[in-house]
């Protein structure tokens, strides 16, 4: 780890000013990802701007009937927040599926959106990685790619975005409030994370110097018919091979509205509005779910070790939709798949 200057920001404006001075500076909040990457020499900020004490730790109702989550709200506090448990249980469930309670106690809401990939080639500075060192090549393409993406890949990068929480935020159509040198703006969740394309070094569409100040949830929480189903190599404390977040509105046995997003399959939480549209107005049955899964996976492509993810994702989508439709969401502690 290189040495760095440590400064603590006293306000959002202070934080934005501090980072504007120094392009090699980074914000730190929970630290669970950044400190890890600094120890691996993957991240080398010359200045750390500590924003963990900013008063962005509130979860508040919005006038539109939604919820505004401060960027510094800890993952565990959010997962167990009464309003989230009652109105957005898919978010609560997704958070509990990720990491460990210790890490969730530290990790911030904003930081969760900014997690970097777990790709082994990204993490090991002795190996090529276009995300870490643009132009050095992608070691995973012809290497160990069991954990890697099957959707939205490019020749430059097949890394996946590792967050569980963000899968739920994607399907809930969260909005990301940011502040920066040019003032405040709001980014739709789907427009926040990027696909790798030719610039895999850019995970998201934050502009230099911008910081996340809040994540806002609209009112629709899908609290009756939802599920977060995470499939992994051991039963807890492992990154997803595939995860599926689902929210349904069901009336008279028919799907009025559907939300569907996947984790572990792409460079961003993978939401498919075409599949959602195909579900809307249909009866909730397996044939319909299978059709939706086929739509989601229409362009899926494996790279060898991860070919199995396509079929796994298909089955997981059908299962998660079934769980949601039946009102039997996946438990995150009882590991029997509902």
């Amino acid at each position: 780890m290189i040495n760095f200057q440590y400064v603590r920001a006293n306000s959002i404006a202070d934080a934005v000013n501090l980072i504007a001075d120094d392009p090699a500076a980074k914000f730190v909040a929970g630290g669970t990802n950044l400190i890890d990457l600094m120890k691996m020499d993957v991240e080398q900020p010359t200045k750390l701007i500590d924003i963990s004490r900013l008063a962005l730790d509130k979860v508040e109702d919005t006038a539109e009937g939604g919820l505004r989550i401060g960027a510094m709200v800890r993952n565990s506090d959010l997962a167990y927040h009464p309003a989230v448990e009652a109105r957005y249980p898919v978010l609560s469930s997704a958070i509990r599926a990720g990491a460990s309670q210790q890490l969730r106690n530290m990790a911030s809401t904003g930081g969760n959106l900014l997690q970097r990939t777990r790709c082994a080639y990204f993490y090991d500075i002795a190996l090529p990685c276009n995300k870490r060192t643009p132009g050095s090549g992608c070691g995973a393409l012809a290497g160990h790619n069991r954990m890697h993406a099957i959707l939205g890949t490019s020749d430059a990068c097949i890394a996946v975005f590792p967050s569980d929480m963000c899968v739920a935020l994607a399907l809930l159509e969260a909005r990301v409030h940011v502040s920066g040198p040019n003032g405040a703006r709001t980014i739709a969740f789907d427009a926040f994370h990027r696909l790798p394309g030719e610039t895999p070094q850019r995970d998201n569409n934050l502009e230099p110097g911008e910081m996340i100040v809040a994540v806002e949830l609209p009112s629709a929480g899908f609290a009756s018919n939802y599920s977060y189903l995470k499939i992994r190599d051991r039963l807890s404390y492992a990154f997803a091979l595939v995860s599926v977040g689902v929210g349904l509105e069901i009336a008279d046995g028919r799907i009025k509205a559907a939300r569907l997003a996947l984790g572990g399959v792409a460079h961003k939480p993978w939401r498919d509005t075409r599949a959602e549209a195909a579900l809307a107005g249909q009866a909730a049955n397996e044939a319909v779910f299978r059709q939706a899964a086929d739509i989601v996976l229409r362009d899926a492509r494996g790279f060898g070790h991860n070919n199995f993810k396509i079929e796994l994702a298909r089955r997981a989508i059908i299962r998660a939709l079934t769980q949601a439709a039946n009102g039997t969401p996946q438990s995150q502690s009882n590991k029997k798949i509902a």
Binding site: R118, A120, Y121, D124, A126, L127, G139, A142, G143, H144, R146, M147, D233, R234, L235, S236, Y237, A238, F239, S333, K335
Partner: peptide, 29 residues
């Protein structure tokens, strides 16, 4: 069910040289 040291034979380097991706059973298992 879990344990395997994965080597990228192109580079001769172990690609799960950590205890997050080299899986050993956790409590839930």
């Amino acid at each position: 069910l879990h344990e395997e040291t994965q080597i990228d034979h192109t580079f001769g380097r172990i690609v799960n040289a950590n205890i997050a991706e080299y899986h050993v059973p956790v409590h839930a298992d």
